[in-house]
Design a protein around this nucleic acid. Sequence first.
RNA 1: CUGGAAGGGCGGAGAAUCGCUCCCCUGAUUUAUCAGGGGGGAGGAAAGUCCGAACACCGUAGGGCGCGAUGCCGCGUAACUCCGCUUGCGGAGAUACACACGGGGGACCUGGCCGCGAGGCCGGUUCACGGAAAGUGCCACAGAAAACAAACCGCCCCCUCCGGGGUAAGGGUGAAAAGGUGGGGUAAGAGCCCACCGCUUCAGGCGCAAGCAUGAAGGCACGGAAAACCCCAUCGGGUGCAAGGCCAAAUAGGGAACUGCGAGGCGGCCCGCCUCAUGCAACGCUCUUCGGAGCGGGGCCGGUUCCGGGUACGGGCUGCUUAGACAAAUGAUUCUCUCCCCGCAAGGGCAGACAGAAAUCGGCUUACAGCCCUUCCAGCACU
RNA 2: GCGAGCGUAGCUCAGCCUGGUAGAGCAUCACGUUGCCAACGUGAGUGUCGAGGGUUCGAAUCCCUUCGCUCGCU
Length: 127
Amino acid sequence: MAAESTQQQGFARADRIKASREFARIKLDGQRLVSGCLIANWRRLEMPASSRLGVITPGRIGRAVDRNRARRLVREAFRLNRTGFSSPVDLVIIARNSIVGKPYSGVEKDFLTLLRKAGLLRLEREG
RNA sequence: CUGGAAGGGCGGAGAAUCGCUCCCCUGAUUUAUCAGGGGGGAGGAAAGUCCGAACACCGUAGGGCGCGAUGCCGCGUAACUCCGCUUGCGGAGAUACACACGGGGGACCUGGCCGCGAGGCCGGUUCACGGAAAGUGCCACAGAAAACAAACCGCCCCCUCCGGGGUAAGGGUGAAAAGGUGGGGUAAGAGCCCACCGCUUCAGGCGCAAGCAUGAAGGCACGGAAAACCCCAUCGGGUGCAAGGCCAAAUAGGGAACUGCGAGGCGGCCCGCCUCAUGCAACGCUCUUCGGAGCGGGGCCGGUUCCGGGUACGGGCUGCUUAGACAAAUGAUUCUCUCCCCGCAAGGGCAGACAGAAAUCGGCUUACAGCCCUUCCAGCACU
RNA sequence: GCGAGCGUAGCUCAGCCUGGUAGAGCAUCACGUUGCCAACGUGAGUGUCGAGGGUUCGAAUCCCUUCGCUCGCU
């Protein structure tokens, strides 16, 4: 909570979902939505917590290069837009095949569309 | 200048903002951690995992058989160890039957030259390149015959005919037909004889060597294939960083069948050897020389097989790294320079391919936009 | 990181060890049968043997390289 104010756009180790148990719990208890090249599973948290992200890039979508790039782009979209969240969530993003070859702007657009549909975004203040 | 082939090299650069990972220093904090500063942070293939090495553990009295790999000669190359400092290079030493380079030899060629010809020399391509004279087996179809040779047609001789004999020149078959070319010789023929070519053996010479050329002798014996079995020589114990070492926690230490026969180890097998077992107490029955022995069922113990349980995208540290993780670090945006593309130009577009380290090293193979260098070949233009 | 296996007709497989003709079943097509269909009967079509190279007179088969797919590991 002390760290929340200092890091606005960072993505430290504590902001990542790592344990396989947590992934399973979010998939079970949370909500699910599909949009574009992404699938989202998420679970709302109590207000004072900070949001966390986990990314899944299945081997099905491509080779190591494509999977690495997909994960980095999703992480970047999360990092740059996390201040706009309406409430803290545990978010798990699963990449689909169509993410291969997409530029960052396309991935970010899908990411924001997904969040808007899920009602996780605060009111858009500026265009 | 353009195009092609071969070989080698590069695989965009700089800056700003936000962000990630590891290490070091300083400060704060009980730790966890946080802040500031400094430094390191993907490739030529990091890939495929096709070879080999190193390293680690396990095994190891010994012998035989088997299994796998390699197979002309010479000379080199790594991680590793030591030293040095410019901190990623230099020097020295060691290993390699992985590989590179050079040499030798064989095979092949609308290739060039020489020779009447067999063939030789040069050039190019290519080769897993010990042995077919240790043995076994194979060579379909065709063909008379496919391997200690052999007579279908033909040729020659004998014979009235039937037939008998000689003969590997010629025909035909085939991938391949038992030295070849030219001449002599003969009834016809044949290394039967001669010359040359090839082959084999021997001699001395040259070369570190594989081998080479020369001379002499032998009438020629040895079809192919060992990427068929095999023989010979050499090498190889097995398993692999999920190897292995230390530590902590949790769970389990259970069931079934078979069995006290033996079991395990020495790579797989055999011999042989070694190790551990072949047991223990009580109960029932029988026998008894009263020491005990046999049988039975079942318990403990031991063995084998199967099932169940726990647990890894590294439980932690280490192995493990001047890149060094474990939901896995190299990213995003913008600008400039060049690169390339479109266009007569102004100008516009655009960072482009293949691809992401998981212990280390050498090699091989595969993928790859574009650019640069060297050599060779072809075309065009100019002098 | 390490190890094992498989690519043959549209599908499932055999043939490979021991080299000379590429086969079986299902499916497909044609004909017969039937008023029509199914079933049944007869017949037919068929393949770069994953790719490249080597050995051989000759390769699906033997050897090497390579591509793709599947599985395993305490």
